[in-house]
Nucleic acid binder design. Structure first.
Length: 906
DNA sequence: CTCTCCCGCCACCCG
DNA sequence: CGGGTGGCGGGAGAG
């Protein structure tokens, strides 16, 4: 499955494919869809998209059309046939078929075949097999079509933190086509994003992409407004009352501030880049306003959990609409739309609040909570970066936020830190109620952030950050270095990485939420949370009792602390640093390995440069190397890779590395599946680690992968150990390090490791040597049981051929991600029945577990080192290889083409 | 059944 | 007036 998915996506659009992957993963985060999606998503998604596109474009050829689902056909239009188009068409058509077959067969190979078939005989496949079935299958899923998924894809296209100087324009048409959806859908996404100032309208059909730089500011502003409007009170009243749809009595509560109008204003002020935004348009932008209000509700809420009914009521009241059921219903629909987008942004996740009446759908805020504290710097930075921004505004905001915090009695950093530790040490599974949990959760996060922050400050890194940040991240990725510190507040810490690749990674970073999400989940839904937590623990520390792994940083800490014994003795000395480093590392990771160096230490920009691109994808992964981890940064050069395991890992993960594949060190990452089965995971991981680690058990590292926005909280801990055997010469350098990695998978992450950058290939190549170790990475999913391991090896690595062309890379990447995602679906079920959202994130991991991937467990992975990706489904390898082999031939070329057009837009 | 929420009709604007 | 926008709600997939 996975493979197919990858393939398809790849074919379609390298970038997109990448994105899709990530997105898919991310989708998990979203509701139900997420789960479902993954399983199907990978395959379907591509298909869908393409078909859709085709229809729109009309590129479709009659021949293929038959294959494709009806809809597609129907819509097909008349686009001129271009090879690319054809490829897309084929792919889309074929992919489903392939999938179906695979399913039927249950083998991965089918997938491979698919690829091949795809390339060569897509049509044949279609024709041969029950095309009909395939078609039908292909179509499916609404989930695939979900706005959340779509949004993730959309987001994947752009860097979370674009350089200030860069301005990316978004062509709605282009996006719609590339994503294979109707423009109308894009409007929904863009409107919500606009409400948060992630984009602004520039002109007809054109939006400017701002990224998340100003998000903190925007959130602060919204928070302030929400406070002004006393949303909290309103919500409280509503809740108290009963949120009956019909009861809208709130009028009272709503209170004074009713200023709907203001909301729009909010948007305006924050808009840095695009002035036009405010002007936008017409109407009200109701969706925009609703979105802002919705966000305000979260920001104002102490629990950070908002039930849809309450939100709908509040909105209705404000709008002064006559409260009627139909309206309520409509509002709820819109809220879902908004929530999907916000979920994709990893700002919220779905939870269920159990009230007297029963369970209610709700969303929990997993985004940054405490902007005020950390913001100052950020703000400044943003200001510097975005001149347009009005400092005044945020100055006020900050004040407000601070006040607000004070009011709420936010924990002091110390407290927070203490708390966190306590939790860690103590019990993860405290039975939090949703609300409680949530509140606690958020606090934790904040505390963590604070802690990190402090550390950072101590190190003075912060300043560096600030300065850097302040600086336009111009070209250098430098910021990356600083970022680590930022990690705490991660979001803001934008990575200046402008790379598209990064975009994904960045998203992940942003995933900051991931942590939150994790935690949040815990807090939020007991069941889900608990499961999650448990799963996580094992994953993180086999034996260790990790409770909540709120943030990557935490993970890092954890690792250091607990791991200390085993892995770190060496590190210990550094441990101190580690703690500090952790943060950095995490962030850095996010950013990307290379840069990683400690922010403080160095920052040789140079390093970053080369790696950045590549790393970006990797950014997701955070290795916690013992010594190295700390130092990771230092050895930035690719060549040094050895020195920098992290990078390697990243590299591998990225698959991009694949190109470089030459390297071989395979890194085995066990995905602690987390959510799924904790116990197993731990064991497995351990075992795996040991196995692999045998090399160097002492050096346990955790790779922390932040989940992409889409993933939301989904973090995967990969305990990755590098396999000696796998390791190539270069790896040799690193080899010594066995790194147990905790991967916090996020949708995006999934992809990352695998393939990261279609675009980046070269850079990678440059680093190839360094990357070598990047051999295939196995991800063992403990939860899954034996679980197949996912090898995220760079296909490249596996196959020298892979070196293959860039085209191949993209594909590879695609597959990788795909693999993950596909698996997800199944697993998700197991893992988290309750919280869809939550599940979604973790899903990928979970799936892996379950996924009956034939792939052997870790052992296999090693053996195969080749790059398999064996995701649960074990798709990877074959596919990748194929791709590599015939990259050109197949889709790769096509994909690329596609990519260019679509993604390139940037 | 309920929860989600896709889909796309069709009204609003803007140029 | 045509086209970009996007409100809106029917209706269906998923659970």
């Amino acid at each position: 499955m996975e493979v197919n998915c990858l393939t398809l996506k790849d074919l379609i659009n390298p970038r997109q494919s990448r994105l899709d992957f990530a997105i898919e993963d991310g989708e998990n985060a979203q509701k139900e869809n997420i789960f479902v999606d993954r399983s199907r998503m990978a395959p379907k998604t591509p298909i869908k998209n393409e078909p859709i596109d085709l229809s729109k474009q009309k590129i479709f050829t009659p021949e293929r059309n038959p294959i494709t689902p009806v809809k597609l056909v129907d819509r097909q239009q008349a686009e001129p046939w271009t090879p690319t188009a054809n490829l897309k068409m084929l792919i889309s058509a074929a992919s489903p078929d392939i999938r179906d077959r695979e399913k039927k067969k249950g083998l991965f190979r089918p997938i491979e075949n698919k690829d091949d078939a795809f390339t060569d005989s897509l049509q044949l496949d279609v024709v041969g097999d029950s095309a009909v079935d395939e078609f039908e299958k292909q179509r499916p899923s609404r989930k695939q079509k979900s706005l959340g998924l779509l949004c993730q894809k959309f987001l994947a296209r752009y860097p979370s933190y674009p350089l200030s100087t860069e301005k990316t324009t978004i062509s709605l048409d282009e996006v719609a086509v590339s994503l294979g959806v109707e423009r109308r859908r894009i409007y929904d996404i863009v409107n919500v994003l606009e409400s948060l100032h992630l984009v602004s309208r520039v002109a007809k059909n054109q939006y400017g992409w701002h990224g998340r730089h100003s998000l903190p500011r925007t959130l602060r502003s919204l928070q302030r407004l929400g406070e002004e409007q006393k949303y909290e009170e309103q919500m409280a009243h509503l809740q108290q009352k009963e949120l009956d749809l019909m009861d809208y009595k709130l009028g009272e509560r709503k209170k004074d501030s009713s200023p709907d109008s203001q909301d729009p204003q909010l948007l305006d002020f924050s808009e840095p880049d695009c002035p036009s935004s405010s002007a936008n348009s017409r109407k009200d932008k109701s969706l925009r306003i609703m979105s802002q209000k919705f966000v305000m509700l979260f920001l104002v809420s102490k629990t950070k959990i908002v039930t849809l009914d309450v939100a709908a009521k509040v909105l209705i009241e404000e709008s002064q609409d006559a409260p009627d059921h139909s309206k309520f219903k409509t509002k709820v629909r819109r809220l879902y739309d908004i929530a999907n987008v916000l979920t994709s942004l990893a700002l919220i996740k779905k939870v269920h609040v159990t009230e007297e009446r029963g369970r209610k759908p709700a969303f929990k805020w997993i985004g940054p909570v405490d902007f005020s504290s950390s913001d100052e710097e950020l703000v400044d930075v943003s200001a510097s970066v975005l001149p347009e921004l009005k400092r005044e505004t945020y100055g006020q905001i900050q004040v407000c936020a601070k006040q607000r915090l004070a009011r709420h009695g936010s924990f002091s950093t110390v407290q927070a830190s203490e708390r966190i530790q306590r939790k860690v040490n103590s019990e993860p599974s405290s039975p939090y109620k949703e609300e409680q949990g949530s509140s606690g959760y958020s606090l934790e996060i904040g505390s963590l952030a604070a802690v990190y922050r402090q550390k950072i400050e101590d190190s003075s890194q912060r300043k560096a950050f600030a300065s850097k940040r302040a600086m336009p991240p111009s070209s250098s990725l430098d910021p990356a270095a600083p970022f680590p510190g930022l990690s705490v507040d991660s979001e803001y810490c934008a990575n200046p990485l402008a790379h598209q690749v990064f975009s994904v990674a960045q998203m992940d970073l942003q995933a900051f939420p991931v942590q939150n999400s994790l935690t949040g989940q815990v807090g939020v839904s007991p069941a889900s949370a608990a499961s999650d937590v448990e799963s996580l623990k094992p994953a993180l520390l086999a034996s260790q009792p990790m409770v909540y792994v709120p943030s990557t940083s935490l993970f890092m800490l954890y690792g250091s602390l607990q791991e200390g014994p085993s892995p770190v003795s060496e590190r210990d000395s550094r441990s101190a640093e580690v703690s500090a480093a952790k943060q950095p590392s995490t962030p850095s990771v996010q950013k990307r390995l290379g840069e990683e160096r400690k922010p403080q230490e160095e920052e040789p920009a140079t390093k970053r440069q080369s790696r950045d691109y590549e790393d970006s994808p990797l950014a997701l992964v955070m290795p916690k190397k013992p010594s190295e981890s700390t130092d990771v940064a230092s050895p930035k050069t690719p060549g040094n890779r050895g020195s920098v395991p992290l990078e390697d890992i990243h590299m591998e993960a990225q698959v991009s590395a694949a190109e470089e594949a030459s390297g071989k060190a395979t890194v085995n990452c066990f995905i602690s599946s987390e959510w799924g089965n904790p116990s197993r995971d731990t064991e497995i991981e351990k075992s795996s680690k040991e196995n692999e680690s045998t090399k160097e058990p002492s050096l346990l590292q955790y790779l922390y992968v932040q989940s992409p926005a889409g993933l939301n909280g989904f973090n995967v801990l990969l305990s990755g150990s590098q396999n000696p055997h796998a390791m190539g010469p270069p790896s040799g350098q690193l080899p010594s390090l066995s790194i147990p990695c905790m991967v916090l998978p996020s949708p995006t992450l999934g992809p990352f490791p695998v393939l990261y950058s279609p675009t980046m290939p070269r850079p990678l190549s440059s680093a190839p040597g360094a990357l070598p170790n990047a051999g295939p990475v196995n991800f063992g999913l403990p939860g899954l049981g034996s679980t197949a391991h996912l090898l995220i090896g760079p296909a490249n690595m596996v196959n020298p051929k892979s070196s293959a062309l860039p085209s191949a890379d993209p594909q590879l990447q695609g597959p990788c991600s795909l693999n993950l995602s596909p698996e997800m679906p199944r697993s998700h079920n197991i893992i988290q029945p309750e919280s869809p959202a939550y599940a979604a994130q973790p899903v990928s991991v979970v799936k892996l577990k379950q996924s009956p991937v034939p792939v052997t467990p870790k052992s296999i992975g090693r053996t195969h080192r080749e790059t398999f990706f064996k995701t649960p489904g074990s798709l990877g390898d074959p596919v990748l290889r194929r791709r590599e082999r015939n990259p050109t031939r197949n889709t790769s070329s096509a994909q690329r083409r596609l990519e260019i057009p679509s993604s390139e837009a940037d």
